[in-house]
Amino acid sequence: MIFTLERTKRTPSVELSENRLVVRGECYPENIAEFSEPIIGNVRDVLDKTEVFEVIFELLYFNSSSAMFLFDLFNMLDDAAGGGCDIAVRWRYEADDDSMEEAGADFEDAFEHASYVLEPRDEL
């Protein structure tokens, strides 16, 4: 693992390896900049070196301040895909939560080059 964060009440777990980023939990940090900057920085470093990168998001809830962080991260991933990196992003949501399905659909605009799919799941 290159970078990891433990899940807390207000922040998701983050697992970043050379080919994969997995984010699981809830995201409404006390301080969004403090939470997001190391993630953005580390993912940027990984994207400079890799050719294939998989991203999995399993968020149960995120607040509006976190939406901007997610959008920035997704833009960075899409730029890397535009530069030739093979990037697949999966947005997983609980099948009975149309609120998080809609939230995932809102980010479709960020993706032009990378693959982005919404995946309903029975239980996260």
């Binding site: 149960l60 809830y61 607040n63 609980e94 009975d96 939560d97 149309d98 609120s99 998080m100």
Partner: peptide, 10 residues
């Protein structure tokens, strides 16, 4: 419903 609870909490 989960989606209702998520909305209220949000």
């Amino acid at each position: 419903k989960r989606s209702l609870a998520t909305k209220i909490f949000a």
